[in-house]
Design a binder for these strands. Structure first.
Lengths: 188, 188
DNA sequence: CCGCTCATGTAACTGGTTACATGATTTA
DNA sequence: TAAATCATGTAACCAGTTACATGAGCGG
């Protein structure tokens, strides 16, 4: 049977989580998204429950029904085909858009900073730097936690988030130095 | 009239582009997305044309019909209400998810690196580092270009992308040093 | 004049969102 | 035992995607 091998970002991440914490329920997968310090997705029930069923229909995971008391539930496990698909999704090869510049909603906003009156501009930058500091503390704490539980990759991912945030902080300070006390029109 | 003040990311960015390059056609807006070195969105016609009409209906932009030869077209300009909405969208205040950890599809994949056999893992990292280097060169060239045209904010945004990519490169090298020649199971 | 790119849209689809419904389990 | 939270879904909606249609202008 002709097997689709492509996965969306959410599908890839979900399949990866199944691989990581299997056997697991859909709710356990949701919790990973919900408690992640970098919530790329809402981890809403409306996304996850249909998604894992989709993966199941494609033979990438198998589910086993169980019951606690009277309530039915399903435990999901990755299949060999699922692992293969997960590996293909991770890469190599790596698509240029994956290794290229990541989306950054803060950078998007800075692009239009000149649309703000000077006072508001300063407050924007102060606000952003404060927000980044908060995020840095949270991520740093999380990374140390992973290290303590000997979760090597979890720690590495946390380090990645941390280094990204620090780079962004350094950059915002550059922007502040550049713009403070200067006047800008649309074209700079 | 009760004016919705919320904008999606694409709507905010589009409104910002109108502010930046007005008066402009929908196609000119598309070109900005299409030629951007960090293509967060496809800039597809099916997204932009309906979107600007939506902005127009909300009174955030106004359009003036023109005609070249027999072909009709529209030039869009931001309204005072539109500028206000744009400013509100930019912030302050800045939502935590905006200043927090940005999504990074490469980091997502690294999270599941232990699912790859060791050889493929090494190739993944080599591939990723090569891809990042390519992106760095492209972004650096773009940033210098903006500087040359005295586009201060354009240059600043390019710098932001550059610093992010460099941080990611440094991080990937950490990951490589950490994993090369080591064996990993799911839980590290 | 043929083909290519510029330009302006429309149509159908879909993945992920919010909101809702409901049952089980824990806690005050 | 009432309230809150855990857990398992379903339903409606919608923004952004790909694919299509079509016309203008230009280069060979």
């Amino acid at each position: 049977m002709a097997q689709e091998t492509e996965l969306s970002e959410l599908e890839g991440a979900t399949l990866g989580i199944v691989w990581d914490i299997q056997p697991c329920t859909a709710y356990a997968i949701r919790r990973v998204f919900l408690t992640s310090p970098s919530p790329s997705w809402s981890g809403s029930a409306g996304a996850i429950y249909p998604l894992v069923e989709r993966l199941s229909k494609r033979g990438l995971v198998v589910s086993e029904a169980f019951r606690t008391g009277r309530r039915p539930g399903r435990q999901y496990t990755i299949t060999p085909a699922g692992l293969e698909t997960l590996r293909a999704w991770i890469g190599p090869p790596i698509q240029p858009w994956v290794s290229g510049v990541p989306v950054d909603s803060l950078r998007t906003r800075v692009r239009f900073l000149a649309a703000l009156p000077p006072g508001k501009r300063d407050r924007f930058l102060a606000d952003a730097l404060a927000g980044i500091d908060i995020a840095i503390r949270a991520v740093d704490r999380d990374a140390r936690l992973r290290l303590a539980e000997k979760n090597v990759m979890g720690h590495a991912v946390g380090r990645g988030a941390l280094l990204t945030l620090r780079a962004r902080r350094a950059w915002l300070r550059e922007v502040r130095a550049l713009t403070s006390g200067r006047r800008f029109s649309r074209r700079g």
